[in-house]
């Protein structure tokens, strides 16, 4: 069975947002190092990311999505509402972080 490895988003020590420090080409082993911010979508939980993927797959139809998930329409709409709120919070956290740490830009 393949082990699922979740991308850590928070520092286990101080709970600050983590950044990407290095990227590696698995083909030629070239490594790029630096400070790269995680994109907004990558900062969401895997469940939220999965919801977004399903939402796009169903062309944004909550009705079709609720049928597929075997949940009622308002349940799925509430899941979307809560996700929108989390996206807004994450985005405002990024803005807040960037305005307080201009050197990261």
């Amino acid at each position: 069975m393949k082990m699922t490895r979740n991308l850590p988003l928070r520092c286990p020590s101080c709970l600050s947002d983590l950044q990407v420090k290095s990227l590696e080409c698995t083909h030629c082993n070239t490594e790029v190092t630096g400070h790269f911010d995680l994109p907004l979508l990558a900062r969401l939980s895997s469940d939220d990311q999965q919801f977004i993927i399903e939402f796009v797959k169903f062309s944004g139809s909550l009705k079709e999505m609720s049928k597929s998930l075997k949940l009622s329409y308002p349940t799925v709409r509430n899941m979307l509402d809560d996700l929108i709120e989390r996206i807004n919070n994450t985005a405002s956290n990024i803005d807040h972080h960037e305005s307080h740490n201009p050197e990261v830009l």
């Binding site: 949940l71 009622s72 308002p74």
Partner: peptide
């Protein structure tokens, strides 16, 4: 039960 049933069905 509304987590699963709502709208016209309910």
């Amino acid at each position: 039960p509304f987590l699963y049933i709502a709208g016209w069905q309910s």
